[in-house]
Design a protein around this nucleic acid. Structure first.
Length: 567
RNA sequence: GCGCUCGUAGCUCAGCUGGAUAGAGCACUCGCCUUCUAAGCGAGCGGUCUUAGGUUCGAAUCCUAACGGGCGUACCA
């Protein structure tokens, strides 16, 4: 059910009866205040203007033609031409009954499936994952989940950095240390530092490292072997983080930088053929109109750059993966880069004219004081350590910890702690910088994952106390909270569609928070299992509670967050 | 210098592409547990939406400029 669209259709029909044709789609919005009804349509005023009519008269005319025998119970015209709309309870009975029966089964069928590539996480294999990778990983994964849930074909791509000069240094050091180094690889960060120190202090070693870079590129067997070994160990570190985070990336989603190496000369020659290439200061560049700086695709020394690789990746994703939409979940600081690369890709036809290219940008993660998130001594915080801290803090926050078995507590803390980290990130507008605050994210109050998990657990508790069989044909929505809750539940699908279109997970969290809040009100004022509640009321309220729980669980699942049966 | 982006309550944030009296949470004050989880609910306090113009019936939202913060500005990714 697309609720707003359905109401829009009814209004459209009313316009048809008046022989008024519309140029744009009808936009119905939730009423700004309770006394203005459930929804409102504000388009009359603009329309009246273009028709040279009095808005209030037109609104009244429209209202007289709106069908009030179905979804809409009542229409009122207010102010200069607002059309306020109330929905019909018995119609809601049917719609909720239908939602209860089919739940979210048909959410995936309602639009043309697209092939969507989501490029996210993309850690550099030379180092361990740190907090800088968190947002891309979390946001990207939730978007991939969302697209999948809506029936699209999603191709996750983990564009790991496995190529570049650092790897010469790292494998030279690896070779030198031999077996001892393998042990040290457990701490990649430490290993990198040691190799770097060696590189800076020993020119002989530095030369060897540079030599090894060239050797990897020329596919020297020995060096390639060392390199592969190194990458596989580093990738295992990342996988450990993904597993702990509960993101769905697996080794098969890895499409590393190095994968595109062989395509790079073709990219250059293709650009040449299209007459897009200019040699400037010895470098091969694409100059774009209205852009001050060119996109450099080949350095003076013949080396390629990340723009070249990105073009190759775009080409591959279009040509081989058949992508309709390609989403890059990457730090906002790279917006200039993507803007340019996308332009070049379109100009050079590396992608189709219709291919949607999006940079899903996000801001920097800051600490409580608004400074970049670092350790006390200014170093980067390892992601794995941050996640462990989240679980440990969650453990402390759980009230019932004394009553739980250790493994139960561990599991609960995982769900809560990791969920809190993810939710905190996903619940803010991704474009702005984001303030990471342990206390806030692990609070039960406000817009947090814990609040939603608590609402869910409360509902589970109700169902653990009753065996009543639910009957969707005996729904009888009547009081205000049942009515409002029903409408909110029916809005879920359009919320997801909107979030998918705009790539804004925070619109989902806002919705879920509103839902949980409304449910809490409902819970306080609409008793279910208490004395004096009629079977009919019980049936209705239990069904609403059930759908609420399922909606919270499903919404959180899309965000990559779990629920718990008890708290 | 040029470009991008942000500026909403003391703090952290929403505001659905122009609508009615700008909303939440935290903090602070005050109410509500013999009955489904009080990790909850209700009420109060708190705003010249950075500023100045413009567009129009109507602007936090769109346009222009200024101020302030963040970021980016050709051979790193």
């Amino acid at each position: 059910m697309k609720l707003k669209a359905h109401i829009g259709t009814i209004i459209h029909e009313a316009f048809n009866r008046l022989d008024i044709s519309l140029s744009s789609e009808i936009q119905v919005v939730p009423a700004s205040r309770v006394e203005f009804g459930d929804f409102q349509y504000n388009g009359v005023m603009k329309l009246a203007k273009s028709m040279g009519k009095n808005p209030k008269e037109l609104a009244l005319l429209l209202a007289s033609q709106i069908d009030t025998s179905g979804a809409i119970a009542k229409v009122e015209v207010a102010g200069p031409g607002f059309v306020n709309i109330w929905l019909n309870d018995s119609w809601l009975d049917g719609a909720i009954g239908n939602l209860f029966e089919n739940r979210f089964d048909n959410f995936a069928n309602s639009l043309n499936p697209e092939t969507i590539v989501v490029d996210y996480s993309g850690p550099n294999m030379a180092k361990e994952m740190h907090v800088g990778h968190l947002r891309s990983t979390i946001i990207g994964d939730s978007l991939a989940n969302l697209f999948e849930f809506l029936g699209h074909k999603v191709i996750r791509q983990n564009h790991i950095g496995d190529w570049g000069t650092q790897f010469g240094m790292l494998i030279a050091y690896l070779e030198e240390q031999d077996s001892a180094a393998y042990a040290k690889l457990k701490d990649l960060e430490e290993f990198y530092k040691l190799a770097k120190t060696r590189f800076d202090s020993d020119t002989k070693f530095a030369n060897k490292a540079r030599d090894y870079v060239v050797k990897i590129q020329s596919k020297d067997k020995h060096c390639l072997g060392l390199w592969e070994k190194f990458i596989s160990i580093s990738l295992a570190h990342s996988q450990e983080v993904y597993d702990k985070l509960g993101v769905l990336l697996t080794p098969k989603d890895v499409r590393a930088e190095s994968f595109y190496n062989d395509m790079l000369p073709e990219i250059i020659s293709h650009l040449e053929q299209k007459n897009l290439l200019t040699v400037s200061d010895g470098a091969k560049c694409v100059f774009l109109p209205e852009e001050e700086t060119p996109v450099i695709v080949q350095k003076r020394d013949g080396g390629y750059l990340y723009a070249t690789t990105d073009l190759a990746a775009l080409f591959y994703r279009y040509k081989t993966l058949k992508a309709d939409r390609i989403c890059y979940v990457v730090d906002a600081r790279q917006s200039e880069h993507f803007k340019q690369v996308f332009k070049v890709a379109k100009l050079a036809s590396f992608v189709g004219d219709e291919t949607v290219l999006e940079h899903i940008a996000f801001g920097t993660m800051m600490d409580k004081n608004g400074k970049p998130f670092k350790t006390r001594d200014g170093g980067t915080i390892k992601l794995i350590e941050l996640l462990d801290e989240a679980v440990s803090r969650a453990k402390d926050a759980i009230k019932s910890k004394e009553n739980l078995k250790p493994d139960e507590l561990e599991k609960l803390a995982q769900t809560i702690g990791i969920g809190a980290v993810k939710y905190a990130d996903l619940s803010v507008n991704r474009e702005a910088n984001y303030i990471f605050d342990w206390d806030k994210m692990l609070s039960f109050e406000g817009n947090t994952s814990l609040y939603l998990q608590y609402a869910y657990a409360r509902i589970q508790s109700i169902f653990s106390k009753t065996q009543i069989e639910l009957n969707k044909d005996k729904l009888a929505i009547q009081n205000e909270l049942e009515h409002r809750l029903s409408i909110l539940l029916l809005s879920f699908k359009e919320v997801l569609l909107h979030a998918a279109k705009e790539a804004t997970p925070h619109t989902i969290t806002s919705y879920l928070y509103d839902l949980a809040t409304l449910f809490m009100q409902f819970y306080e004022s609409c008793p279910i299992l208490k004395e004096g509640v009629s079977p009919k009321e019980q049936n209705t309220r239990l069904i609403l509670a059930q759908i609420t729980a399922d909606t919270i669980a499903q919404g959180l699942k899309i965000l990559g967050i779990g629920v718990v049966q008890r708290l």
